[in-house]
Design a protein around this nucleic acid. Structure first.
Length: 877
RNA sequence: GGGCGCAUAGCUCAGCGGAAGAGCACCUGCCUUACAAGCAGGGGGUCGCAGGUUCGAACCCUGCUGCGCCCACCA
């Protein structure tokens, strides 16, 4: 070896150690202020508000995924020259947090009522100070480039002001109102729930048929909730149902109660279902409530807030599920059960927080009148002010906003934003804005309820920027650029932000793009859950594989709107990729690669140089357009394969040869190598920020990749050189074919084999002979070959012929097998292509370029057959 | 009860009108002077089933089957 031989790397440790380096790198970024946005900047803004995790939450894979994607977007845009604001914060998570603290209290034998409202709320704040926000520290480990100087909490004073201002605005606009209606009530949480906080599941129930009345006027109804009959105030039948026509307007006796209730006619009743007669419990069933309203029926509440029976008598105080069989038994005793109970599967609502069966309950609550808000929210997407990615999910969004019912926003909780309405002694009602004094004096009191958590998080894109004040942040950073979140909270949160944002901000949409990612599943596609025991903890992955590998794995799986299966092997693969990048850079630095140097003129570069630089240029534009479409999986896939398959497997190997050539060529190679790695590190930085930062600062001596320019602007890459591309493709094909031949022949990879190269195809790439010989491990022929095996490879310039001195070691059987396989493939190809070309209809209708391609394929196949046949005939028997 | 989506290599998924792809797993040979967390080579798929449109279908249409998801105030 000469003095020009590649040298050992010196400047980087042998291996990347994430555990040792990540935290330090992150703190350096933060203290340098790279993530702090400047509202006075002249740069175009790029804004993302972080979906605020619950204060009770800790980082799970879903967060890790979403954070990785947002971090990639913000880092990419920052490098492109945008003024980036990524605003972090947390949600106070009303019911969830209150439940956690109540559970803690229960451990001390206390309930929130023992403490009283004020002390309980203090206790929640204490809890937050001690345990809350664990997730924020975990975000640092992931590398989230958020602006910590703008961290927010939905219960902050400023955000609370925004909540009061929004409520007041809606109140004044007639879009919030107070009304007594049937709501979903959770008897365990003891609060009202909105429709989306209720999850329906098919539960087993029993349908019993009960006879009301006697003799001629008897009428049979069926129910799965027998206990509610205590609150019946009518029986309804269809107006056209002849079976019951004579009963309409009469009264029947309601068993067990001594009450008589009317039979009413209502269109709602389906005469085909059951007996065609329905018991009507207006205070405990939404349908019945409507019937009750239409017929002016009394609304009889028979359960308290814990769902215990309040009707005086034998059932009083019983829980609804105790009362159910008790009522049936009592009815049976009276001979009222006409058909035995039978199993019946029906949809039952459950509290999404605690899974308790929801009890429909007549109750006085605050509501948002959603129709005008939802219409605006639909409009903004329909007219393209906001676009949804992937587009298919926009349909779901429309289904929702077009059919939304009014939104119950009051919650009978203590932890949250209290409704800013005061009631006076004479029934007055005053909504108090953030800058107004509540009415004082005897008999005035504030509404005890708090607002649904999603009300305050619905203001997140602008409340965090200082609304209702007209702040510099709002002016600069609103509307936000992208909202990234899982499709599962499209309705909970996204639709609400759209409605409230458009209303508060005079029709300006809260975000330009909504990106919806899929849910994380385990390796076999099952939902991760604690009970299944298949949960993967992102912190565990970060400990074992590093934050970069964890992020890269998530990004590689992120196809828009599609769920992602995760397994440990994927993370290991990403870790391996990081190692590959590390070693490649170490090699380059060790061999004197220099970054940032002016590239020599294209004419002075080798074809390999021009090829890799051209490829780099293509990769930059591919990554740019894929990221613009939120195609994270495809963007990372492009980078993965480019880095590994092209840069490392081919260019680095070709560069090794160039580095041993004369000093001018070697020097050029160092520049190109430096340029290539510099570029690829920049491209990878949004996804794997830590390792790229470490490598890039060492390679280039630059300050930080976080604030480095994106390659498209920073680095001059020459135009794609098609001749160089085609020649390098030939080199690759020839080398691969020779390797295949060697492998078939059982030649050891390290064993140099004397070989001559010739032929028209080879002549066109003769300049690459040294590289071909190095990569295929060939040596020059020293003397006449004792025996030879030959190989023909079809290249763009014709056939290249390889004569290998096998010194008698050629394995004739293996060679015959290989040739026969090739022959079969060529014959199949010939048959296929000739079939097509013999088809007149095809020739008439197919585009010319397609036909030409097939002609070439046919000719190549024919030539191959001839050549291979000759080789086979020439083999010793 | 409505609506949507998916069925492609052993697994997880790309491809969505003109020669079946990737990662992991598997087989063979290698510690070849960046990397064994690696290198080189290889096997493996009538693209769920049945029809249709087309010169040509994994890709478009229809039906079927099997999964999954969302929405839902029929007792």
């Amino acid at each position: 070896m000469t003095e020009n031989a590649p040298q050992q790397p010196t400047e980087l440790p042998n291996a990347w150690n994430p555990a040792e380096e990540e935290a330090g790198l992150y703190e350096r970024w933060v203290s340098a202020g790279y993530f702090t946005a400047d509202a006075e900047s002249d740069k175009p803004p790029f804004t993302i508000v972080l979906p605020p995790p619950n204060v009770t939450g800790s980082l799970h894979m879903g967060h890790a995924l979403n954070h990785t994607l947002m971090d990639a977007l913000t880092r990419w845009r920052r490098m492109q020259g945008y003024e980036v604001l990524w605003l972090p914060g947390m949600d106070h998570a009303g019911i969830a947090t209150q439940n956690v603290v109540e559970r803690e209290l229960a451990g001390e034998g206390l309930s929130r009522h023992d403490l009283g409202r004020e002390r309980f709320v203090e206790r929640v704040w204490d809890w937050k100070a001690t345990y809350g926000g664990k997730i924020l520290d975990q975000m640092r480990r992931l590398g989230d480039g958020v602006d910590w100087s703008r961290e927010r909490f939905t219960m902050d004073e400023n955000l609370s002001r925004a909540v009061r201002a929004m409520f007041k605005k809606l109140y004044d606009d007639g879009l919030v109102y107070r009304a007594e209606r049937i709501i979903n009530w959770c008897p365990r949480c003891q609060t009202a729930l909105s429709d989306i906080e209720v999850e329906h599941s098919d539960d087993d129930g029993e349908l019993v048929s009960i006879r009301y009345g006697e003799g001629d006027t008897a009428i049979v109804v069926a129910t799965t909730r027998a206990e509610t009959m205590l609150g019946d105030t009518a029986v309804a039948v269809h107006p056209g149902d002849e079976r019951y026509a004579h009963l309409i307007g009469t009264e029947v006796e309601l068993p067990l109660t001594g009450r008589r209730i009317p039979v009413v006619a209502d269109e709602h009743v389906d005469p085909e279902f059951g007996t065609g007669a329905v018991k009507v419990t207006p205070a405990h069933d939404p349908n019945d409530f409507e019937i009750g309203r239409r017929h002016d029926l009394p609304m009889l509440t028979i359960m308290d807030e814990r769902a215990a029976i309040t009707v005086a008598g034998p059932f009083e105080g019983m829980d609804r599920f105790e009362a159910r069989p008790a009522v049936v038994a009592a009815l049976r005793e009276q001979g009222r059960i006409v058909a035995e109970k039978r199993p019946y599967v029906h949809a039952v609502g459950h509290c999404s927080r605690c899974d308790t069966v929801v009890e429909p309950r007549l109750s006085l609550q605050w509501w948002v009148k959603v129709e005008p808000l939802a219409r605006a929210a639909g409009e903004a997407v329909r007219d393209g002010r906001t676009t949804v990615h992937p587009q298919e999910l926009a349909k779901r969004y429309f289904d929702w906003v077009d059919n939304m019912h009014d939104w119950t926003i009051s919650r009978q909780l203590w932890w949250g934003h209290r409704i800013p309405v005061w009631y006076g002694p004479d029934g007055e009602m005053v909504c108090v804005g953030p800058d107004e004094q509540p009415p004082a004096g005897e008999g005035w009191y504030q509404d005890p309820d708090v607002l649904d958590t999603w009300f305050s998080s619905g203001l997140w894109p602008f409340s965090t920027m200082g609304w209702p004040e007209r702040t510099a942040d709002l002016a600069k950073f609103y509307p936000t650029s992208v909202l990234s979140t899982g499709y599962d909270i499209l309705f909970f949160w996204v639709a609400r932000m759209m409605m409230l944002g458009l209303h508060a901000m005079d029709g300006v949409q809260p975000f330009d793009h909504i990106y919806l990612h899929g849910l994380i599943r385990d390796a076999s596609g099952k939902k991760m859950s604690k009970s299944r025991g298949n949960v993967i903890d992102p912190l565990d992955w970060m400990d074992r594989f590093g934050a970069d590998a964890t992020r890269f794995t998530l990004a590689r799986g992120a196809n828009p709107g599609t769920d992602m299966a995760l397994a440990e092997e994927w993370a290991a693969g990403s870790r391996n990729f990081c190692t590959k990048l590390w070693n490649a850079t170490r090699f380059a630095i060790g061999n004197g690669a220099v970054a940032g140097r002016q590239l020599p003129d294209a004419a002075e570069l080798t074809e390999a140089d021009r090829w890799i630089l051209g490829r780099l240029r293509t990769v930059v534009s591919e990554v740019d357009s894929l990221l613009a479409e939120f195609q994270f999986a495809k963007a990372t896939n492009v980078l993965y394969h480019f880095t590994w398959d092209e840069l490392c497997d081919w260019y680095l190997e070709l560069a090794k040869v160039q580095l041993t050539e004369d000093s001018a060529a070697a020097e050029n190679t160092r520049v190109v190598l430096g340029q290539a790695l510099d570029t690829v590190l920049r491209l990878l930085h949004p996804f794997i920020p830590f390792i790229t930062e470490r490598l890039w600062t060492t390679l280039t001596g630059g300050e930080s990749l976080v604030v480095a320019e994106w390659p498209a602007g920073a680095l001059a890459l020459p135009a794609v050189d098609e001749v160089a591309d085609s020649r390098i493709a030939d080199v690759q094909k020839l080398v691969t074919e020779i390797r295949r031949f060697r492998s078939d022949q059982g030649l050891k990879p390290g064993q140099r084999v004397a070989t001559t190269l010739s032929g028209e195809g080879f002549a066109a790439i003769e300049g690459h002979e040294a590289a071909i010989r190095a990569l295929a491990r060939l040596s020059d022929p020293s003397a006449a070959f004792a025996s030879t095996a030959s190989l023909d490879v079809a290249l763009s310039g014709g056939v290249a012929t390889v004569e290998v001195d096998t010194s008698g070691t050629i394995d004739v059987a293996a060679e015959r097998k290989r040739l026969q396989k090739d022959l079969a493939a060529a014959e199949k190809e010939l048959k296929q292509t000739e079939g097509k070309l013999g088809n007149q209809a095809f020739l008439d209708k197919a585009p010319a370029d397609v036909v030409d391609k097939i002609r070439v394929r046919r000719d190549t196949a024919a030539a191959d057959i001839e050549r291979i046949t000759g080789r086979l005939a020439g083999l010793p028997s």
